[in-house]
Design a protein around this nucleic acid. Structure first.
Lengths: 64, 64
DNA sequence: ACTTTTTGTCAAGTATATTTTACATTTTAT
DNA sequence: ATAAAATGTAAAATATACTTGACAAAAAGT
C-alpha cells in the first residue's frame, strides 16, 4: 500500500507526535506509524478516530 | 454499533442485492450484511471498495 | 558533541475481521 | 397460495489488525 502523506501532514500541522496521536485514538504508536506508512489496512473506526483527532474528514484523509 | 442505513439506501437505489455487492467487492454476502447491520467494524479498504461500487464517497456512507 | 525525543521496524502474541457452511425468516414475483 | 430470491444469523475456522517489548536510527534541542 501507499504511504498516507495527507495524514502525516495533518498531524504535523497540529505539531502532534505519533505517540500523542496514538494516545488520543487508543492505539499504539506502532499502529499509527504503520497506518501512515501504508503497512496495513486499518479499520474504519480507527480511521474515524484519527480524522476526529486531526480535525479532518474521511474523504480528506482516506479517500483517493 | 448502529445500522448503516445510508449504505443500505445507496444499494437499494442501484437495485443491487447484498450478494451482487458482495461479489463486486470480493467479500461474502454475510460480510455485507454485517456491515449494513453494524455488526462490526470493516477495514478501510472494504469501505472504499463499497463506496466505489455504490458511486459514493467515504464521507457519504461512513462519516458521521 | 551530547541528550532527548521521535520515528522505523521486527518478532511473537492476542483480538477481531472475514470465511465457510448451514438453516430460518422475510420479501418479491408468479 | 406457492415458489423463488433476498436477508438475518450462528458456530467454527482462518486471515489479519493491533499489541507488547525491544532495539536502532534519524531529528530536534541544548
Amino acid at each position: 500500500m501507499a504511504k498516507n502523506l495527507r495524514m502525516k501532514s495533518a498531524r504535523a500541522a497540529l505539531d502532534m507526535s505519533q505517540e500523542e496521536l496514538a494516545k488520543k485514538v487508543n492505539v499504539t504508536r506502532q499502529t499509527v506509524s504503520a497506518v501512515e506508512n501504508g503497512d496495513y489496512n486499518p479499520t474504519i473506526n480507527l480511521c474515524i478516530a484519527i480524522c476526529k483527532a486531526l480535525n479532518k474528514t474521511l474523504d480528506e484523509l482516506f479517500w483517493e
